[in-house]
Design a protein around this nucleic acid. Structure first.
Lengths: 322, 322
DNA sequence: CTGTTAGCGCCTTCAT
DNA sequence: ATGAAGGCGCTAACAG
């Protein structure tokens, strides 16, 4: 029997005599045969792989959740994701995208934190579909799945104001080159302005955006003798770290200081006090990004997909209500 | 100029006239040319990919940390990791391994939770190198990077006993089909036995091994009116969830109940009280697994690699000391 | 329904 | 130092 017959049964691409079909299937089992995916990809021009660029896999649960959303749909359409980390670095991100492209990925889902909009927008002109997640890329708005960061911080501040706070600190990232950081900062200022509150530089502290950074930052705030009755954290990790430090130093949360985080990562509802936060629906966003990518590469219509995501305030116990 | 000349400059595989070399390089830039990795892989029989099977990417920081260790070395040797999740399910794990193999991965790093030892041991007989991480596979001891789970729980119990506890509960996973769970349970019993303490069935509760499960489990313990002054958690997540529940219900930790976790995931030093735990050096283990895989596929000597990892007690504030 | 043929894009002898 | 030719394993027409 010829080699094409085999190909036919493997791909179900034409009618084959049931007996031969059986024979092939049996032989495949016996010999433990697996078609060489590279040969397949070479001729079919389809790798069945979707390339994913993420910031990191270990800087918290954030990306992991995004990946979960992505994998769900990639899995559903029987494709594969090959993920690579850019480590928030411009050169590495560029190199990663290059690699993904060279690997003949059928589509790309990019979470770029360091590359400029123009460069990213260029990418969509190529022939492999590209989708951006977690960022609104100018010039590629229809390919961007994004979250309104500024609005998120604004909502957080508003909530605090509603609870009677007027001295609201902002514990943020020391790397303001990321759009996220800039936007959240802008939202904080906007929130203050909305409430007719003055912006006070001495109430903002910057540190590495993780739990330790939160520790460091709030300590700095205390050292400065800044007067504040509440703070909003750049992310939950910083907020958790800050709370931990306050508690250690006998400052009650939310008794003396109210706290509100950002992201709603899973564990913050298990810390004490449970952290109020702004939900960032990252898993859903990953899902939508993947969905968009998949439709793009299948030339299917892309309407009905949500591109912009809105913040939602999650009230738990870290804010003293009045 | 011929196509083989181009190949030669790309791979640096033979001397080429400097001028031609230049010309090729320039043309590559101009045309934005990238060699087709599938064609390369097809002929060279090397994909430069290392396949990784993990339980999940989102069930906590555990796997993410493992991936970090793996990626570090994979990156160093200029290879690629393609990761796939098995979701702790036998069939899915089997299918995942199949896929990885079909993808012509140069080597496999497997974190299998559900497949039996025999099946795993069979894999190493194939021609692509296979390494197991986080599990001691019988028949493939020299390919297993593992952690002494039983000893970990034993150490935990011993520590609690040393602090004067004798009523020590065990909050564990409801899926005892995983080796980890069995081993940790065995360690708990061993620890009791070491101390001459009786094993009391009413002190062990099972639930889904995450924060919510910890909640549920400790509630069950309370509902049973079990008397206990300490517990060891199957993992940090469960311990954190349990503590959260206790605190909510006015039970002081560690005042009335001491707690000890397992894994030492990053966030537990920021919860209140800071969680004492058994460190599981998962990142390092990922690193070693990758190192082993890389050496194997390069036919390099594999000595000097650490295969077995030992538990280490991390004392923080969740255990009342006397 | 089935076998034959022609590549997919690249690397690797083998001559030159 | 360079070009020509063969083949990696597979799929997709094209004939029967």
């Amino acid at each position: 029997m010829s080699i094409s017959t085999v190909s036919r049964v493997i791909n179900n691409t034409a009618q084959v005599a049931p007996e031969k079909r059986e024979a092939v299937l049996n032989a495949m089992k016996e010999l433990n045969f697996r078609p060489n995916s590279f040969a397949q990809a070479l001729v079919s021009k389809r790798s069945n792989c979707i390339g994913v660029l993420v910031g990191d896999l270990c800087g918290g649960p954030f990306f992991a959740q995004m990946m979960l959303g992505i994998e769900q749909v990639v899995d559903r359409v029987n494709k594969f994701s090959i993920v690579i980390t850019g480590n928030h670095d411009e050169h590495r991100e560029r190199h990663a995208i290059d690699t993904l492209l060279q690997r003949q990925c059928d589509a790309l889902i990019l979470h770029s934190m360091a590359l400029p909009d123009e460069e990213l927008a260029e990418l969509v002109k190529r022939d492999t579909p590209v989708v951006f997640v977690n960022r609104l890329v100018k010039g590629a708005e229809d390919r961007s799945i994004w979250f309104d960061n500024a609005e998120g911080c604004r909502v957080a501040v508003r909530h605090l104001v509603e609870q009677g706070h007027s001295r609201i600190a902002f514990i943020t990232s020391d790397d303001q080159s990321f759009v996220d950081a800039q936007q959240r900062f802008a939202g904080y200022r906007q929130g203050l302005q909305d409430a007719g509150l003055p912006f006070d530089e001495s109430l903002v502290v910057k540190a590495y955006p993780d739990e330790v950074g939160g520790h460091v930052a709030v300590k700095e705030l205390l050292d400065r003798k800044a007067e504040f009755t509440a703070f909003v954290g750049y992310n939950d990790a910083m907020a958790a770290g800050a709370i931990s430090y306050l508690l250690e130093n006998g400052i009650q949360v939310p008794g003396q200081v109210s706290a509100i985080g950002f992201d709603d990562i899973p564990y913050v509802r298990f810390i004490h006090p449970k952290l109020s936060t702004i939900r960032y629906p990252i898993e859903k966003m990953g899902e939508q990004a993947a969905e968009l990518a998949v439709r793009l590469l299948d030339n299917k219509p892309v309407d009905g997909l949500r591109l912009k995501f809105e913040p939602e305030l999650i009230e738990r116990n870290s804010v003293k209500t009045r």
